[in-house]
Simulated scan of single mutants.
Amino acid sequence: MLTVAELFATDTLITAEEREIRDTVAAFTDRRIRPYIAEWFETGSFPVREIAPELGKMGVLGMHLEGYGCAGLPATAYGLACQELEAADSGLRSLVSVQGSLAMTAIHKYGSEEQKNHWLPDMAAGRTLGCFGLTEPDFGSDPGGMRTRARRDGDDWVLNGSKMWITNGSIADIAVVWAKVDVNGKDLVRGFLVPAGTPGFTTREMTRKLSLRASITAELTLADVRLPASAVLPGAEGLSGPLSCLSEARFGIIFGALGAARDCLRATIEYSRTREVFDKPLAAYQLTQAKLADMALELGKGQLLALHLSRLKDRGELTPEQVSAGKLNSTREAIAIARECRTILGANGITLDYPVLRHANNLESVLTYEGTAEVHQLVLGKALTGASAFR
């Protein structure tokens, strides 16, 4: 029997070092995540404080960043790591993405040397947790409409507003919060570092989720939060700051979503070979094989696209439109594969004895965050036609 990787010979497209990183992360998830993930998902919990230092020890937190305790590895290695993390659970990959591609990237790219030296080494080690406050209750796809504002008061800044759907928000040590400031009568988006425990800064964990249950999600509230001038990210002026961080996170999703799809397909093939229906294995039926073949084809094509985009990123040639194409394809095909796999598993597919519906539920969120499928369609539409449909 062939795996999808063997069918498409994708291992021939990656280096020995990249394979070693991928296999190291896969072994970690086999040992520390897979035996417990069904229980965590069912109880809506995840031991972030326990797992984060282990991720830091492996070097996957901010692994694509240079210096300050970060591994400085190629984009392809990071992508393959994300694939293995999300093959275990989307919540685990989200933890790594928010820490490294959002919070750490914002500080690394736009922070002062003092900010970088103070925060990044401990964040890379998993001793300090970060979150990224951009989305608001009324502004998800349109971050430019945010209502959170910052005003000067002497040498200080005072922030007021709220953020919603913030991964790790209620347990983070440092929040990267984006707010509008008035500059000569015009609004400009700036980034601020808000330490946990700052007066006026409160969080509320969001519960009753049906997706990403093994992940901490929170609402952030800022009520006259006073920060010193040193809390501002000096290099970020305008919405391009947070959007560039989102592009980094989207890149990880291109690989990550395919990891979830691969795990669904693996479990389904194993099930179909042992489950007997009308006196023969389910895998021996033409309809089953047609479904498996179609899913393997889409997964393989998605992995080839992901690898191509990662090589472009390693060469510094990857564009935001290409990231949108990859994110749209991977998430759309991954959720379709998860749903199709569930049909093969039948009633067994709705239980946590198998990973399929857990992945499908998680992918409902992955399809939406870091830009909905519709937003990425419009990004591609604008690139192809030159006409913007956003306004």
Score class of each variant (00 low, 15 high):
Gly381Glu: 12
Ala373Leu: 11
Thr198Cys: 03
Met146Tyr: 03
Gly69Met: 08
Arg226Ile: 08
Ala124Val: 09
Ile21Asp: 12
Gln99Glu: 15
Arg391Val: 09
Val96Leu: 03
Glu370Arg: 12
Ser97Cys: 12
Asp187Ala: 09
Arg204Asn: 10
Ala347Ile: 12
Lys180Phe: 12
Val232Cys: 01
Ser162Gln: 15
Ala387Pro: 00
Lys57Phe: 05
Val277Gln: 08
Leu120Pro: 07
Gly349Ser: 02
Glu54Tyr: 03
Lys327Ala: 14
Met123Gln: 06
Glu248Arg: 10
Ala334Leu: 00
Val158Asp: 11
Gly381Asn: 14
Asn160Met: 01
Thr202Ser: 12
Val158Met: 09
Leu258Cys: 07
Ser272Tyr: 02
Leu65Phe: 07
Pro53Val: 03
Asp279Asn: 13
Gly235Phe: 04
Ser244Met: 08
Asn117Pro: 00
Val177His: 02
Phe390Gln: 11
Ala38His: 07
Cys82Leu: 10
Lys180His: 15
Phe46Leu: 04
Ala334Asn: 01
Asp30Thr: 08
Arg31Gln: 15
Lys301Glu: 15
Glu248Asp: 10
Trp119Tyr: 15
Arg262Glu: 15
Glu50Arg: 09
Glu18Phe: 06
Leu246Thr: 09
Gly56Val: 08
Ala306Gly: 02
Leu345Asp: 02
Gly59His: 04
Thr343Met: 04
Leu357Thr: 15
Val176Ala: 02
Gly145Gln: 11
Arg147Cys: 00
Leu65Asn: 09
Asp294Gln: 14
Arg250Val: 00
Thr372Phe: 05
Val177Trp: 00
Ala150Asn: 05
Gly241Thr: 10
Leu239Pro: 02
Thr288Trp: 05
Asp142Lys: 13
Glu39Met: 05
Leu227Gly: 09
Ser240Ala: 15
Leu2Ser: 14
Glu6Ala: 14
Arg226Glu: 11
Arg22Lys: 13
Phe255Ala: 08
Arg127His: 13
Ala334Gln: 02
Ala389Glu: 10
Met164Ala: 02
Leu352Glu: 05
Val379Asp: 14
Gly62His: 06
Gly145Ser: 07
Gly161Lys: 01
Trp119Ser: 11
Gln289His: 06
Val183Lys: 12
Leu210Thr: 14
Glu340Lys: 09
Glu317Asp: 08
Ala267Met: 02
Ala9Asp: 14
Phe255Asn: 03
Arg275Thr: 13
Ala334Ile: 01
Leu282Pro: 01
Glu84Lys: 08
Leu380Lys: 03
Ala338Arg: 06
Ala325Pro: 03
Ala38Val: 06
Ser170Val: 00
Ala360Asn: 00
Val25Phe: 03
Ala296Glu: 14
Asn329Ile: 00
Pro121Glu: 11
Ala218Asp: 04
